[in-house]
């Protein structure tokens, strides 16, 4: 169980994390979702005692990280797979970590086996691919057989096989009753991995709910209606109190399905040219929710070749 209470981090004038409170239950995979730069990593670092919060606290099973005795036995974390000395072997890296928390040396071989790195354990970590580094990071997190696990963007840059492996792995850890807290900026990935979601944008909490609730809530289903007689249709729909959005020659109706709208049109004698259900994508929903909270907006170019790509060489 991880608990954040009023967590705040300020760097000079920027408020990276703003009065953030949430809790991460055990026995489930909890996703920590937000666009890049939303403050996910900073929050995780504060939970782990690496960064000192400007305000608020983060507790793990009721204790601050820096008060834990032999913390690797309570919490395992993978924040950055590259936090390994490149000239140290994978085994040597795990050995010093194990020793620091008085874990038996044979545990090193066990975790190497779990993540499938036994055959390259003696190789220098600097030569590892991203996927292998990620596995080494997970091995380090598992060393103390901890009940609480934190992963920061663990699937970033992995191939599909690696992504699938990590996803299954997290489910297994949660099924064993552990607390699994995993951050990502990809909603589609989280929809498959996490059962609970903590969503933040610009350092602020946007929602905490089950993934299912978040998805149904976030993705509204609409129906697009095109007709040469929009005015009578609009007034008829208006009487029913559903929300309507104008889109040129069409209306986008939410809160009513195709069948009901078709029957209504028939009763009113309105000719329809199109009646089609629209399903919002998860990404759109996520964008909608966190829309004003993305730190750096990109201008999406007009159709055709973006101007910036054609100026070179002129």
């Amino acid at each position: 169980m991880i608990e954040a209470v009023g967590l705040t981090k300020r760097y000079g004038k920027t408020l990276a994390v703003d009065n953030l409170s949430f809790s991460v239950p055990s026995g489930r995979v909890t996703g920590f979702l937000g666009p890049n730069g939303a403050g996910k990593s900073t929050t995780m670092r504060m939970i782990l005692g690496l960064d000192t919060p400007t305000g608020g606290t983060a507790l793990i099973d009721g204790k601050r990280y820096r008060d834990l005795q032999q913390p690797l036995r309570t919490v395992g974390a993978l924040l950055d797979a590259k936090w390994v000395h490149p000239n140290r072997s994978a085994r040597a890296h795990l050995q010093w970590l194990a020793r620091s928390n008085r874990l038996p040396a044979k545990r090193v071989d066990e975790v190497l086996e779990i993540v499938g790195l036994t055959s390259v354990a003696g190789k220098r970590a600097g030569g590892f691919s991203l996927g292998m580094s990620q596995r080494l990071g997970i091995a380090a997190a598992l060393l103390g057989d901890p009940q609480v696990l934190l992963f920061d963007e663990p699937v970033n840059g992995l191939d599909p096989e690696g992504i699938l492996w990590i996803r299954k792995f997290m489910h297994r850890l949660a099924e064993e009753g552990r607390t699994v807290f995993v951050s990502s900026h990809l909603l589609s990935e989280m929809a498959l991995t996490a059962q609970e979601l903590v969503v933040i944008g610009r350092g602020k909490l946007i929602s905490q709910s089950s993934t299912e609730d978040f998805v149904t809530q976030a993705t509204e289903n609409t129906v697009r209606v095109r007709s040469p007689q929009l005015a009578p249709l609009r007034s008829a729909l208006g009487k029913l109190g559903v929300s309507i959005r104008d889109e040129g020659e069409a209306l986008v109706v939410s809160g009513m399905d195709c069948a009901d709208i078709g029957e209504l049109a028939a009763r009113e004698g309105v000719v329809l040219h199109e009646l089609s259900p629209q399903r919002g994508s998860l990404e759109e929903a996520f964008m909608q929710l966190t829309g004003d909270s993305v730190e750096y907006h990109t201008e999406i170019a007009e159709p055709g070749v973006p101007a910036t790509l054609t100026t070179a060489g002129k």
């Binding site: 005692g49 690496l50 820096r66 950055d80 590259k82 936090w83 000395h85 970590l97 928390n101 380090a140």
Partner: peptide
Amino acid sequence: TTEYRFGTIRATFLAVPN
């Protein structure tokens, strides 16, 4: 300094918060 360079200082402080 190499601990800072390669980020292992954070691994160190995670294992030994004191």
